[in-house]
Nucleic acid binder design. Structure first.
Lengths: 112, 112
DNA sequence: TTCATATATTCTAATATTTGAATATATACC
DNA sequence: GGTATATATTCAAATATTAGAATATATGAA
């Protein structure tokens, strides 16, 4: 598995950055637009955008004083989709322990 | 967006844990199986499995001395799929800066 | 009960991430 | 030029993550 992809995934995995990416998935936005709907200070948003830029998740157009950000990496929408999906139940558990083919007891760790 | 999902995404985003999850996506495995194909010590694998258990990404069956781990959270395979997908090009960039509807220059930050 | 096997936990040091505060830069407009 | 606006950078402190080492626990077998 490509390590760059995993790094990008890690970068994505932050509440503020997810919000930024979701907003960008609805269309191009400049930093002030992002400031408006997030309760986060400008400098911090800029820090997050810098991370997203460096990991090539986003890119931007400059128009005069504005930087208009947009999504660039095609994995990002896929990840957002997977995050938003409504999962109704757990994956089916295997019939029995396939290693020993014998009976089993359920893991106790599941409630922790 | 559900914060638990984002936390899980962050937990997933680690090279060793991705490898473990990929292996589990091929079928149930006990810890020793995982040790065999990863060049990581048992204690460390156990630490990663503990994280994955606590975030409910995986669960396990006990069979005597063996703990047979399997995938539990349905988002995990979706994320693995998104990671493995062969993305051939970037998302299409917007025609022009939609904020000002004027001409634009491309961001210089893209090469950093 | 004792031993070996399978796995987990605890502790710790190194490192990375996160945020706020302050400051810097770049551009448009006067 | 000077000023206001839009955004980025730097620094530092708080916090979180990571991996290794040592040790603990649980189970099955003898």
């Amino acid at each position: 598995m490509n390590n760059k992809r995993i790094e990008l995934l890690k970068i994505i995995s932050h509440p503020t950055r997810i919000k930024i990416l979701e907003e960008l998935s609805r269309g191009v936005k400049c930093v002030r637009d992002i400031e408006e709907f997030l309760e986060v200070r400008q400098a911090n948003i800029s820090q997050h955008l810098t991370l997203l830029r460096h990991s090539r998740a986003v890119d931007y157009y400059m128009d005069g004083r504005l930087r208009c950000y947009f999504l660039k990496d095609p994995m990002v929408p896929e990840i957002l989709k997977a995050l938003k999906k409504n999962y109704t139940k757990d994956l089916p558990a295997p019939e029995c322990c396939p290693v020993t083919k014998k009976g089993y007891t359920l893991g106790k760790g599941r409630s922790k």
